[in-house]
């Protein structure tokens, strides 16, 4: 994280030295772009706050730990698509689940859809890509995530 601040500060400093006018222009663009996407960010935050309340860790543990493993893979993929979770929460949780005996391919379905499929980021993505492309892109991502889960299952010998 600090690298980002140092990098931004450095870039800004160099830019100011090179041209004050251009730097002012850059900051104007930054502010304008930020303000224009702010409503979508807010809607996303509202959705996240509600969904994270409804889908607790216990719910995730129950569905991912289901006995029927392919059902577990599918519900893991479904949950991962709906939830939006920062990595610093998701991976420790996955680590705990692994110790509890949850299969690698179930965890893979969960974390990969978590990263790739964004139901909650829909307001933000739609603003840039439009409704149609957003849906196509996320559907493709969902299929890719399932392929990843399947290959993970093959690799760790969990398929049969």
């Amino acid at each position: 994280m600090y690298i980002l601040y140092i990098l931004t500060g450095l870039a800004l400093a160099i830019s100011i030295i090179a041209s004050r006018q251009k730097t002012a222009g850059a900051l104007r663009i930054a502010a304008k772009r930020f303000v224009s996407i702010l409503p979508a960010f807010l809607i996303m935050l509202i959705l996240v706050s509600i969904v994270l309340f409804l889908i607790t860790d216990e719910v995730i543990i129950r569905y991912l730990g289901a006995d029927a493993k392919y059902l577990a893979v599918l519900s893991a993929a479904g949950l991962g698509s709906i939830i939006l979770m920062p990595g610093f929460i998701a991976f420790p949780l996955a680590g705990v689940l692994l110790e509890k005996g949850v299969l690698y391919m179930v965890l893979s379905a969960f974390t990969t859809t978590l990263m790739m499929v964004g139901v909650l980021t829909y307001p933000v993505e739609k603003a840039y890509l439009g409704t149609g492309v957003t849906i196509i892109r996320n559907s493709i991502s969902f299929v890719i995530a399932l392929a990843v889960a399947l290959m993970t299952g093959v690799f760790f010998g969990e398929i049969f």
Partner: peptide, 14 residues
């Protein structure tokens, strides 16, 4: 987010 948008702004002008 603020850093990201500042970098986007700098990218746009430079």
């Amino acid at each position: 987010v603020p850093c990201a948008f500042i970098l986007i702004g700098l990218f746009e002008v430079w």
